[in-house]
Design a protein around this nucleic acid. Structure first.
Lengths: 232, 232
DNA sequence: CTACTTTTGTGCTCTATAACATAATTATAT
DNA sequence: ATATAATTATGTTATAGAGCACAAAAGTAG
């Protein structure tokens, strides 16, 4: 497989959110620091307990942030192209409390956190960018905690399916999820065992809420899914 | 009851974390803006869905941040004197997704978020302060999600007791929790029903891990509690 | 002091979901 | 192609914890 190098211009395009906030001088400085790295499907990007060193921006692919618990693992959030991750721990002054892995072959832009903190210190807009990002993520985490602990299996799975649609979108038919997850990943996203994810998926299919073709999931009654997700 | 006014000097002492980062001019500006407000035991401070307007700093008392789910409510985090809260939603650009209430009579210093954002825009150290704070809180939220979903009742209650000790400390005997929570609040903190909190508390007492005297809880075998919390 | 409400404590039942077992299917490697 | 491993599917059993009922105790109000 020919793996073309990503041209710098394209990378800059991808990290536009940050790039646009910088002065020319800062842009020049940053340009010298970033580099890209490829990850294979299911490859680990970083581990719980690792020391954070780089801010990462997903250029291509799909990534999960997860945490290994007792037996099962829990997917905490997922990253789509253009999103930043892996910086929280550094800012918080601790090691990673989560791990990250690629759902699919992915390309990641890496920027040393030292560079980022320097830029944050000089550039107030960038600081505000991170404040906003962290605030949004914390709000989502708070919501998620309650959803995962209080909703029933059906509600949690319905929510996960809708969440995947909102995050990674659908194919041309406007209904088939663009991400093909294993049942296990689907279970880890919805806080349940793999068997229960499979069973509930089958139920949903029998109830004509979705259709299943291997890992392809097509949402056919989104309204009812939303209702199920809401009432738990 | 005579409720003395809190002198400005004392307030400034309490918000020292922020105050110390400001220039003299900024301090002068801030001094004109903040004010204090008292809340009675169990009084609601803000509601889920409210529009955030002020950053709050707890001067005296104890506060819970919680979220009402189906039937039960879940305590997301607790605030001790000197800590800031209620600002995340404003920074994130949304309404409150949680509510806050006073565990005990509390005094809160209020600073308009407009003032805060202005200061954040001018003062990079302040921006960095919030980045760090939010990063720490997000890390805690991620940990908590997994603990609440995967640990068993005993593990969750043990964790809650230790957490209360770490947060609010103990009395002179070095073992009695300084916070006297209702069984219901304890349950909401540990994601379980009130009956199960009561039952498990009784179990812990029989096992000589704690002693109970009404709402007074004394941790007598912390090491074993930690073990129970860890293994789930 | 008396009535009323809230909180705490305990027992019993029921159910959602984990845990386990096994087969069928699909992917991956040799 | 064949063997091996991983994933998906489905049935069965076991259990943690919710839900409910009710009584005792402790607050709170009139």
């Amino acid at each position: 497989m020919v793996r073309k190098e990503i041209p710098a211009a394209e990378i800059i395009e991808s990290i536009a959110d940050i790039w646009a906030l910088l002065t020319e001088e800062q842009q020049k400085m940053l340009a010298k620091q970033f580099f890209t790295q490829r990850f294979k499907k299911n490859e680990l990007i970083y581990c719980e307990g690792d020391r954070p060193t780089h801010l990462m921006c997903l250029l291509e692919g799909k990534v999960k942030i997860f945490k290994n618990g007792v037996g099962r693992s829990q997917i905490i959030r997922v990253i789509k192209p253009g999103e930043y991750f892996a910086y929280r721990a550094y800012f918080g002054g601790n090691d990673y409390v989560t791990a990250a892995a690629a759902f699919e072959p992915s390309i990641i832009c890496m920027i040393p956190m030292q560079t980022i903190t320097q830029l944050v210190a000089e550039n107030n807009l960038l600081a505000q960018f991170f404040i906003k990002q962290l605030s949004i993520d914390l709000g989502i985490a708070d919501e998620r905690t309650v959803n995962l602990t209080q909703k029933h299996i059906r509600g949690r799975l319905a929510e996960a399916l809708l969440f995947l649609k909102d995050t990674y979108g659908v194919e041309e038919d406007e209904a088939t999820l663009s991400i093909y997850l294993s049942r296990e990943d689907l279970a880890n996203l919805s806080n349940m065992t793999t068997s229960n994810a499979i069973r509930t998926l089958t139920l949903f299919s029998n109830e004509r809420l979705i259709t299943i073709d291997g890992r392809k999931i097509r949402l056919i009654d989104e309204e009812r899914l939303r209702k199920i997700s809401k009432i738990g």
